[in-house]
Design a protein around this nucleic acid. Structure first.
Lengths: 198, 198
DNA sequence: GTCTATAGTGCGATAGAC
DNA sequence: GTCTATCGCACTATAGAC
């Protein structure tokens, strides 16, 4: 008999999502989560900084995929071409068999503003990291920020569509379409701005 | 001698910012803020849902300005032209004499992730409202979301530049420039996507 | 205005593995 | 013995209930 079951963090994660789904985020106490896997509240807080963090990836694997995608683009690529490369790479993190799990997790997040806040912070942190990577590849500071924010926007819109009812396409295919729509939207705006009023 | 000073909410707001600046957000208790203006903790929570909310506009005047700007654009305007109109209208909320106050407030927010989270939620809520207004004017659902998110991105980037050290231009002027840069970034991407790899 | 549940922190104790 | 995961206890502050 071992003194501790292995993988305490992962067990807490699974238990937390299940309880959040069953009875809601606010109706679930940290004590309840911990006890359900034979641990104490104090141990929960050794693994997660707070009650929300248990739903988010602490290793930032998605961020690493995005950065790898940026750096995989050819040196001659325009900023948004690097973003397109990053989106394609990151899509590998969401194969079709994860779609249902993503739907469940997202329904919990959507139901609670506090969780939505945390998700937005993660996305903003991701955008900042991408912008930094673009700057490291020679993109001007402000252009890098704009391109990175546009990238996470496209990712967010595509992800929302990916988990929509009845959606069959892969995340990569949806991302490609959404990025194209963004490009179409801005086409012609530059000239319109020059002739129009401030 | 009046029974109570007018504008309890406003007094709490001023006291909170001052204390957050002086000693930090986490080092300041709600009790401390309330007592400093002769009120109790209980009263603070009658005015603000939580400790962070005291730094944010509860009336969403900025959001109203954005929506008015969207609806002020001519019916023939393209989605991003409606966004340009909204940005121009909203800039009126940040005259030059507010710049220093904005700098102070933003330095507090930047120093605390919890406050950053709340700000991101407000921005996301603003984007959702703008998207809704665009849809009401006939813009397709996904295009409306993309245009609205791009609008808040431009606003955020421009605002950051507006409060940067030494910046002299008006917010409206900076917004115009940033929107132009976004348009330039995406120019040519649509055709590049068609010929490039997925 | 009072009372209470819960989140989250700090520090020390414990009990195994090595 | 050291190292480390976990627990126990005391405590504060937020936030909501009554």
């Amino acid at each position: 008999m071992v003194r501790w079951e292995p993988g305490a963090g992962e067990r807490l994660r699974v238990a937390a999502l299940e309880l959040y789904v069953r009875q809601g985020f606010e109706q679930t106490t940290v004590e309840e989560i911990a006890r359900s896997v034979g641990l104490t509240e104090r141990t929960f807080f050794r693994y997660f900084a707070d009650k929300r963090e248990v739903l988010f990836d602490p290793q930032n694997l998605l961020q690493e995929a995005f950065l790898a995608g940026v750096n995989a683009a050819p040196p001659t690529a325009a900023p948004l071409e690097m973003i397109a490369s990053a989106l394609a790479t990151s899509a590998a993190f969401f194969p079709d068999d994860r779609r249902n799990w993503s739907r469940q997790r997202q329904s919990v997040i959507a139901a609670n503003p506090a969780l939505k806040e945390r998700e937005l912070l993660k996305l903003a942190t991701l955008a900042a990291a991408i912008a930094e990577a673009l700057r490291a590849r020679g993109v001007a500071a402000q252009a890098a920020t704009l391109a990175a924010e546009s990238g996470t926007t496209v990712f967010g819109v595509a992800f929302t569509q990916w988990i929509a009812d009845g959606e069959q396409r892969s995340l990569a295919a949806i991302e490609h379409e959404v990025l194209g729509e963004l490009a179409a939207l801005t086409t012609g705006l530059a000239t319109a701005l020059d002739r129009g009023p401030a």
